[in-house]
Design a protein around this nucleic acid. Sequence first.
DNA 1: AGCCCCGGTGAAGTC
DNA 2: CACCGGGGCT
Length: 802
Amino acid sequence: MTTDSHFLDQLNPVQKQAAITTEGPVMIIAGAGSGKTRVLTFRIAHLIEKGVDPFNVLALTFTNKAAREMKSRIGRLIGDSKARSLWMGTFHSVFAKILRFEAEKLGYPSNFTIYDTDDSKSVIKEVLKQLNLDEKVYKPSLVLNRISSAKNNLISYKQYQNNTTIQAEDRNSQKPLMGFVYEAYAKRCFKAGAMDFDDLLFNTNILMRDFPDVLIKYQDKFRYILVDEYQDTNFSQYVIVKQLAARFENICEVGDDAQSIYAFRGANIQNILNFKKDYPDVKTFKLEENYRSTQSIVQVANAVIANNKDQFEKNVFTRNEEGEKIKVIKANTDNEEGAKVANLIFETKLREQAFNKQFAILYRTNAQSRALEEALRKLNISYRIYGGISFYQRKEIKDLLAYFRLCINHNDDESLKRIINYPARGIGATTMDKLDLAAAEHGISIFTVCENLKDFNLGINGGTANKINDFVTLIKNFGLQLAVKDAFELGNTIAINSGILKDLYADKTPEGVSRYENIQELLNGLKDFVLQNRTPQEEELKSSIISTMEVQKDDLFATEPTTELRTLDEFMQEITLMTDVDKEEENETDFDKVSLMTIHAAKGLEFPYVFIVGLEENLFPSQLSINSRADLEEERRLFYVALTRAEKRATLTYATTRYRFGNIVYAEPSRFLDELDDKYVEYPEIPSSSFSNSAFDKLKGRSFGNKNEEPQFKSNFKPKVAGKKPLLNVNATKSNSFNQNMDADTIKNLREGNMVEHAQFGKGKIEFIEGEFPNLKATVDFEIGGKRQLLLKYAKLKVLPT
DNA sequence: AGCCCCGGTGAAGTC
DNA sequence: CACCGGGGCT
């Protein structure tokens, strides 16, 4: 496509109108797969082509990855340099960037730290200790949720304490002092020069409320505003957008109420309704034609979502072919479910010449990934997991990052506590308690106490005091290098001089080696970072500040704005708000992988073949949702999102038993399975082992694509909705399936020649049994694992009929 | 100060 | 089953 072609002609009439109606408020209701990204991309390209300066365009996306992808697509239409100048990113990253330059107005340093959830929880724990509250009553995660939701509704701690409704709620939940916890938490963060995720939005609101000139500056700057995934914005975000757009009202909101899946963290579908109230002359466009999926998939998804009461009328349709029916597959255990999914992928790859990367396995909770991973590994199918513990959550990475953070912001108490005695330098718990107490009493940071140790009579002995001084010197010394060294050089210096590298190098266990490698990988990341150019937004902010304000002597201006030096604090700003999905698969040589992720993480993505697993009551829909209609409807929207990820084939699976908390629980098929339109559904039987009667044999000697080779379909699925049983704990001793130890009788009856199956090693034949009960030992020849000796009382074997 | 072992407890989803 | 915090031992 060339720059001067009429790219707009590729759009259908509604899409085109949505793209070219650039002035005034616009609402685009975009059904799943309706080409939303395309419309947004073309709309922005069109704006720029019309002569709008890209610096005046703000596009808020749901992930940074989405922003990056959209930028590059726009770049292809109108040129990269213009596209690069667009302001695009998540709410959090865009406003974090702006806050860097305005923070001092709010009393924060411009190099404020962003606390992640772990940091926040740890602050809350300290606060609870300080207030003498019981962690079992005031559970840190609950407290954090409560504070978070207050902030997302723009309720300050003072308002919180004065709000009678809230106070009544807290008294009812036996947590009357919650308001004081909120206050102490907020004060601690402020003192540490730190903002949590919610503060980034909350403080942006404060900034715009209390500094009209700043508001005007940004209103004037962002003349065209686009918000993607509007259905997932919360009140705080809604107000920011409303304020920014107040002057020009060139605001375009894109969303789909049917895909709202973040109410749990304060997202509010009402924002869409408010939009109509705020801008009565809003022009609405409905994108209803689905270009992504087959008839079957669209129809089934529509049938499912029709069960929700809260929704806009909308008629999503497709002119694509009818396609295959949706497949529903039953398994007896979670492991069998994994095996069946893996087999189907294996088979489909052979039969349809498909690639790994065309498959996605979606689940409700991260914990479900284990069984799936094992099954995929068994068949040598390479996969990638999104979410779960991300790279930046690993202990060793967090340790090193804590050094970085502390160097940038000495008041970051959380980081200080993490590393003051790591690697061990003889500053123990007793000393820490004293420092902590002094800091709290004087309302200053721990580092400040350390710097001025002799001013506080803490009864710390001379030796320890020296160690503290050494630490202070070390950190200050690193801090001084921020302005003169690039991120990679300084990162390296810190990794070495802190002693981290040495400490990890000394650990020769496999975990230790892996930790060392992770640090190296982070340093590689730093290297990459310093080789990239600064984004135009960063340049812009730097120069705009310099031209509008007198030069100050703080860190921001210590270096020439034009310098190419990419510093460590810039690196930290960039990575702090990165999510796992945002991370490029940089160093991966093998891109062809099956994707495993939660449905939440799959939002916005599409795959030819989609597996939705764990369709069981109390799992999907989640146990926590089934008592409220609103929550249940959100689960259903989540299911809708999952289904509409599929282009060609959607396969749904459920297991009748599943491991949870280490023991087997029975599960019933999800109520959502009853809501499928039967006309488009079938129930094939799938073998769970690929090495005997399945994939290999079936494919052997048969031509690909022969309809007769389809497994025979049988409707074995008789869901019942009435009288759902609660989760049941099962006494597992007598049952004989893998992943549990065999009972005594089973062990005694085992004979040489018996066939067994192991979750990891597959099927095998017992060649030899030695020893005496209960210490019988068997030599088993496994199909996958080869010959192994197993102590039978520990072996988790399933005995197969001979 | 640091390590290890024990027992209690707990998994929804994310910037 | 897996993690965390507390207590006790070296």
